[in-house]
Each structure stands twice: as structure tokens, then as C-alpha cells.
Amino acid sequence: MTHTVLVTGVSRHIGARVASVLAADPGIDRVIGVDTVPPPSLSRDGGVPLGRTEFVRVDLRSPDIAQVIAAADIDTVVHMSLLSAPSRSGGRALMKEHNVIGTMQLLGACQRSATVRRVVVRSTTAVYGSSPHDPAVFTEDTEPGEPPGHGYAKDACEVEGYVRGFARRRLDVTVSMLRFANFMGPGVDSPLTRYFTQPVLPTVLGFDPRLQFVHEDDAVEVLRRMAMEDHPGTFNVAGDGVLLLSQCARRAGLPSLPVPSSAFRFMGGLARGAGLVGFSPEQLRLMRYGRVVDTARLAAALGWRPKFSTASAYEDFVRARDLAGGLPSAMLDLFSQAVEQAVRR
């Protein structure tokens, strides 16, 4: 069977990497990458070489995408174009349009298409929300007590709703929905990675959330497998294990600054206004209550486990960004020496 794969969102890091591994696969005839903006140049902005991916600049919110799908006899669609934070110029309204209307247009085009056999959609574990009333570990079937009410997570919930509708109408198409934990790794640029690159980490006083990360390499591998094999259903994707926010700060050697939740919210708003660290309300909830998902279903379906655990994904990120502030451990060294000398005397 010949494969022609459409990848949306190739101008962003993970999308570009997925397109490039698919382009490197001899079993795939054509890879067509679309996005609203052209990919960043390789030399300057740390772009990823796309290989033989054919780039088409399409605004997903317009019906042009239908023409792309019809013209190229596409059989597999990998939908990666989900913005997690508003762009500096566009704002929240544009982000929502991009995420929700973009998905509707794409799925509309897929529904019309006679050739599409497989649709892989990137979603997020943020659809579970974050609250003190939910079970500690979410499985794919958990109905969250408080579904997310705004921002990225709400967009993702709506996108999932349209994807489920599409799956009901086109029973002949294999639909895989992947709920990724926060991406982590050297090339990832997200609100959370920007948070961890601050010199001091503000935390919410009295809260120490459990976090889970998925390494970008593992995310790309999961998307590649999903694009090549039939695995219908919804899957959580996260590295094994859990890190507490306090552990993340300690492992990076970064000082943390606990502030009351109202001040945290205020500072988050200020930082967002200044274009520094975009922290939306649902991310603020994450910083209080955290979120952990069960990944057994993915492991069973693929017969594969992520190479990076949550902890090693974070370690790789810290090493690549050279964040490790050595002050606490250096002070500890001095302290240990002093104690040992005092004992010997």
C-alpha cells in the first residue's frame, strides 16, 4: 500500500520532527506538511530539517485544506496543529480559532475524502483538568469532576469532541487520539519549559503538584508508530514515574519562591502581560493540584514503553539548556567538609 501522509503544524518543533522521521521512512511515498507560517530557517532558529517533506502554506481555518487533501490522495493525517499558548501578536481569540475551527475544517475535509484511512490527533492530558476532587491517576475513561473551562484545555476538549464525532461518522477510518503529558526535552518551547528556565521558580505556597513529562523523542516515536499502524482509540502518553515540582526545582538546583496563590495568579498575569512566561488559569491549577495519568493502555497497544521516564526527560532538558544551578550542592559540599573536619578534630 502506498502511503501519503499529511502532517499539520510542521512549523513547530514536534510537528517538524514527526514530518522528518516520516519523510525518512522508505515505506512512505510522500509527506506533505502544512502550517499557517513557514518553518523556521535551519541555521538561525534551530529548525528541524524536514527532509523530502513538501511544505504547503495553508491557513487551517480556511477550506483550502480540502483541496490539499483531495489533490494528493492522502491516506494518513497526523494532526499536530494545536497551539498551547496564544501567540504574542494574535491573542487568545486567534488561538481558539486556530485550534477549534482549524480542526473542524480539517476533519470536514477528511470526512469528504475517499482516500483517508487513518487520522492521528494530538491532544493533551490537560483535558482532565486539575482539581482536588479527582482521582490521583487518570485513566483514559476517567470523567473529570471539573472539566476545564477555558484556554488550551478547553480547546482540546472541544477538538476531542469533534474528533469523536468524526470517528462516529466515518467508521471505516482509524482514529487515534493521543493525550500527551507536557512535552519536555532540549528542543521544546512551551509555557512549562519557559517556566523552568527562570532563575527563580515561583511556586504556590502550600502546594507541591505532581507533574509528568513526555520526552520529545518518545512523543515523535509514538506519533510515528500511530501514523504507520492501526491503533484506534484514545491513549495517554507520558513518561513513567512522577516528579514533584519541588523535586524539579531541586534537581535543577534552582531556588523556588513560594508565594500565596493570589499573588501567584497576579504575578502570572503580569508576566503574561510582559510576554515573559505565559501562564493561563488552567496552568495555574496545574501548579496547585498537578496531574498524573495512567499509560498502561498505550504500552499494551504498542508493545512499547517510552525510553525516557519523567525524571530522565526532565534531566535531559536541564542538561541541554544548561540550567543546573550548582549553588545548593556546592554549599552542601562545603557544609559536609566542615562537619567532617569538626568530627575528626
Partner: peptide, 15 residues
């Protein structure tokens, strides 16, 4: 003390 300061300890999925 070193484990605590450098965060090199494990918590389970419940924290």
C-alpha cells in the same frame, strides 16, 4: 541531606 537538597529521591504516582 544531599538526596533531599538535590531532589534525588522517588515519589510514587500518588506523590
Amino acid at each position: 541531606l544531599r538526596r533531599r537538597v538535590t531532589g534525588e529521591y522517588d515519589v510514587d504516582e500518588f506523590g
